[in-house]
Amino acid sequence: MLIRAENLRKSYTKKGRSGRTVSALRETDIELESGRLTVVFGRSGSGKTTLLNILSGLVRPTEGRVLFDGKDIFSLADGELSRFRSRNIGYIPQGQSALSVLTVEENVLLPASLIGDESAAEAERLLDIVGLTELRNAYPNELSGGELRRLAVARALINKPAVIFADEPTNDLDDENTRLVLDLLKRTAEGGKAVVVVTHEQSAAAYADVIYRMDGGVLTEGKGCNREIA
């Protein structure tokens, strides 16, 4: 699947008396291809999460459009867009994102229930890949930070989406878990999916096929050695 964003802009009006308009994302174009791991580096507040949320259809841009195989996802009504997102987009949010009332296996299966395809075998396969088979009946409060992040990866993959978006997937993780999560994402990209990671984790550069840098809402593509760009 080819994902292309054209002329994206996002500005917010600040709450409060000032009512100031803040430009979170300046005019941006980006193209994402299947089979590649794209990493977007940037400081906190640089606009990288805003870009990710727009690309994944969660946040509507002020201007511009996002095309999935030529189809503008923001031309869809909320219900249609949500259905499209649940089938085609896997999203790994920042921080802890497991639902506390569901077991590990149920958390993984929840997105599948949205498209009416709850395959326990697929959940089991993914739990095996992310190393959580033993914990399938555990609740999120019994898991470590790294395990929770791997659970989020498995959940994002359950519907076999074409593209995975990961927002700071290694934040607060130790080196071992950081490596595990980035390995998983790299293998996912190698499996034919487009994977986009926004992070400030320098080590992610080693896994990237394409690197971007976001600064003050401006996206620039990195050239040369990955580590230097990061």
Partner: peptide, 15 residues
């Protein structure tokens, strides 16, 4: 936050 997570999974506003 719980509902924001549901939204990222693919829940529509109506759901």
């Amino acid at each position: 936050r719980e509902f924001a997570v549901l939204r990222t999974i693919g829940f529509s506003r109506r759901q």
